[in-house]
Design a protein around this nucleic acid. Structure first.
Lengths: 337, 337
DNA sequence: CTGAAAGCGCTTACAG
DNA sequence: CTGAAAGCGCTTACAG
C-alpha cells in the first residue's frame, strides 16, 4: 500500500500538501492538486483512516456493546435496538462497531477502542465497566438503568416498574386475581423492577400477592426462552392456580402458546396471555394475536445514539431518558365485559 | 488520558517495557511488572488500540458493508445474515464494523478502513469497489456473486438460477401453467438469475413462457416490499391469468396475502403462493403458513466470515461457496393429488 | 530482562 | 499557497 509519503515524493510536494488535497482543510492550487491526484492514482493510494484517527483523535465510530448468546439468534428486541442505533448513527455519518465479545473480567485487557463513544446494553449491578469508561473519559450511554442509580451516567430505559404495574392493573381490571409471571432471569434489574410493579398493582387493589407465582428464566435450566415458556406452563398448569400468564418476551409467549395448544387450553377463554417484549410483526402473526407491551426497542436504540452523539460533540452533557412502553391489546387476553 | 509514556516515567522504566507488560510479548521481571501495573492503575492508563493497530497493522475488526434503507427496518434476511457474520467473527475474537453508510461515488473518499478485511453485500454490476479493495489489498468476500463473474474474487451465494428453476418445477409439477412472479428490483443480479431459472423450468416442461408475468420491485414506485406485494396482486388479479404467485420475499408475500384476503381469494385452493426469502419464524406464523425457500441467510453470513478470516490469515486464498437453498413446503400452495 | 530509537501513516501549528 | 518538523500512542528489531 502506497502511503502519503510515496505520493508526496511522486508528486514532488510535501506530505502536508498531499494531506491537504485529500482533507481539503487548507486550499491547494489546482495545478498542485491535479499533480497530487494523478500521483495518488498511479500509486493506488488510499488514505489510511487508522493513522488519521490517531492524529486527530476521532474515529467517527460508535461502539455498541451487546453480548449475544452463542447459540440463539438475536431476539426481536435486540434486532430492533441495533436497528435504532445504526439508523441514527448512519444519519449522522457514524459507523457502528458491534462488540459482542464476552467481556474480560481482567481489567488489564480493557483497552480504549477505536471509537468516539460507546453504547452499552444491560449494565449489571455494580458494573465495573461504567467506572472504567469514566476513567477513560469515553462518552458512554447505557441502555437499561445503572444499578445502583447514578445521576452522572447517561442512559435510556423503559420504566419497568411502571410496565409491571400497568400490565398487572390491566389484568386485575379484567377480573384476574391470580397470575403466573414468567419473568426474566433473576440477575437482571428489569426482572426486579417489573416484579415490584406487578406487586404494587396487586397491593393497590387489595389483592393478595400470594396469588402471584413468579418464575425466573435461566439459560442453564431452560435452554432457550421458548422452551422456558413451554415447560413452565406445562409444569405450572394444574399445580398452581392462575387465570393469566405474563410472559417476559414474545418468544416465551410462543412457547407458552404451544403448551396451551397441547394441553387443550383455549386462549383467551380459559387463560389470558400477555407478553412484555414485543416484536410487532411476530405478535400479529400468532394465533390468537398476542396482547403485548411494545418496548419500543428501536426508539431505545436511536435515543441512546442521539444522546451519545450529543455527548461526543459536547463532553459534559448528561442526560437520561425514559422511553414510553405501551400495552397493545390484541386477542390473547380475555376482557371483562 | 494517560499514555504509555506517562506510565513509563512514573514507573521509572522505558515505554518498551510498559508495552511488554501489557502485551506479554517479552518477559518482564515480576518486580518491574508490578511497578508498571501499579503506575498504570494510579494514572488510569488503558492501552490505546488505535495506536497499537497502526503499529502492528492489524485491528481484529471485520468490516461489513451492508446498505440499509433509511425508512424500513432490516429484513429478516439481513438480520440473519448479520447474525451469521457476527457469530462467526466473535467466535474467533473479531469484532464487526457495521458500515451502512451510503457509498461515496467519489473515489477520493474511499479510504482504507480500520479493518482487517471486509464482507460486502449485494455487489452491483461492474462494482467499482471490488477493484478498489483489490488495489488496497484488503481481503474481500462478497455475499452475492460478482457480475461479471470473476474467478479471482471470493464470494458466497445461493444458486439463484437453481432456486428459480426449482420453484418453477415445483409449481409445474402441481399443475400450474401460468404464474405471477413478483421479482426483486431489476438491477439486482439475483433478479435476473431467478427469472432465468424460472424460464428454464417452463421451457424444460414445454410450457410457454408467455404464461409468466414478471414484475420488478421498485422502491420509488412501491414504497416498501409489503406494499409491492399488495398492490401488485390487486392490480394483476383479474387482468392476468395466473394460478400461482412467486413472491421475492416473505414481506412481499405478506402483502400479497393481505390482498387475497380482501379480494376473497382462498389460499391455496384458488391461488398458490410461494416466497423466496424466508424468515422461518414469520413463515410459520402466517395463516396459511407460507411455503417458502429457505435461503440460509445465517449460513451465508457465517460462511462469508469463515472465508474472510481464512483469507486474512493467509492472503492469496480464493474461495467461492454456494449455499444450498431449500424449498420448505408449508400450506400456501395447492398440491396436485 | 531492559532501554534507546526508529517506525506505523497521518495532521497541524508555525513560518515563509 | 506550500514546506519542515513535531506529534498522535503504540511496537519492535537491535544492542547490551
Amino acid at each position: 500500500m502506497a502511503t502519503i509519503n510515496d505520493v508526496a515524493k511522486r508528486a514532488g510536494v510535501s506530505k502536508g500538501t498531499v494531506s491537504s488535497v485529500f482533507s481539503k482543510k487548507r486550499p491547494i492550487s489546482t495545478e498542485v492538486t491535479e499533480r497530487v491526484l494523478a500521483a495518488a492514482k498511479e500509486l493506488s493510494y488510499f488514505p489510511n483512516q487508522l493513522a488519521r484517527s490517531l492524529a486527530i483523535k476521532k474515529t467517527m465510530i460508535v461502539g455498541l456493546k451487546i453480548p449475544i448468546s452463542r447459540e440463539h439468534a438475536m431476539s426481536g428486541f435486540e434486532v430492533q435496538l441495533i436497528n435504532g442505533v445504526i439508523r441514527e448513527c448512519s444519519k449522522r455519518g457514524y459507523r457502528v462497531l458491534l462488540d459482542t465479545l464476552p467481556e474480560h473480567d481482567d481489567p488489564i485487557h480493557f483497552a480504549v477502542d477505536p471509537v468516539d463513544g460507546v453504547i452499552m446494553l444491560n449494565p449489571r449491578t455494580n458494573d465495573p465497566r461504567i467506572d472504567r469508561y469514566k476513567l477513560m473519559q469515553t462518552p458512554l450511554v447505557l441502555i437499561g438503568r445503572p444499578d445502583p442509580m447514578d445521576a452522572s451516567v447517561c442512559y435510556v430505559d423503559n420504566d419497568n416498574v411502571r410496565i409491571g404495574s400497568q400490565v398487572g392493573q390491566y389484568l386485575i381490571d379484567n377480573g384476574h386475581t391470580s397470575v403466573l409471571f414468567l419473568n426474566a432471569s433473576s440477575d437482571m434489574t428489569v426482572a426486579a423492577d417489573r416484579k415490584s410493579g406487578l406487586y404494587e398493582a396487586f397491593e393497590r387493589s387489595g389483592l393478595s400477592t400470594e396469588q402471584l407465582k413468579v418464575l425466573h428464566y435461566s439459560r442453564k435450566q431452560h435452554g432457550n426462552p421458548t422452551k422456558y415458556g413451554y415447560v413452565s406452563l406445562k409444569h405450572s398448569y394444574g399445580n398452581h392456580e392462575f387465570t393469566a400468564v405474563i410472559a417476559d418476551t414474545d418468544r416465551v409467549a410462543l412457547g407458552a402458546l404451544q403448551a396451551t395448544r397441547e394441553l387443550g387450553i383455549v386462549i383467551p377463554e380459559q387463560l389470558s396471555i400477555v407478553a412484555l417484549s414485543d416484536d410487532p410483526i411476530l405478535a400479529q402473526e400468532t394465533s390468537p394475536k398476542l396482547t403485548s407491551v411494545e418496548l419500543s426497542a428501536e426508539l431505545l436504540g436511536s435515543e441512546a445514539a442521539k444522546i451519545l452523539l450529543k455527548k461526543i460533540k459536547n463532553i459534559g452533557i448528561v442526560q437520561q431518558k425514559v422511553i414510553d412502553a405501551k400495552l397493545i391489546l390484541r386477542e390473547s387476553c380475555k376482557t371483562y365485559v
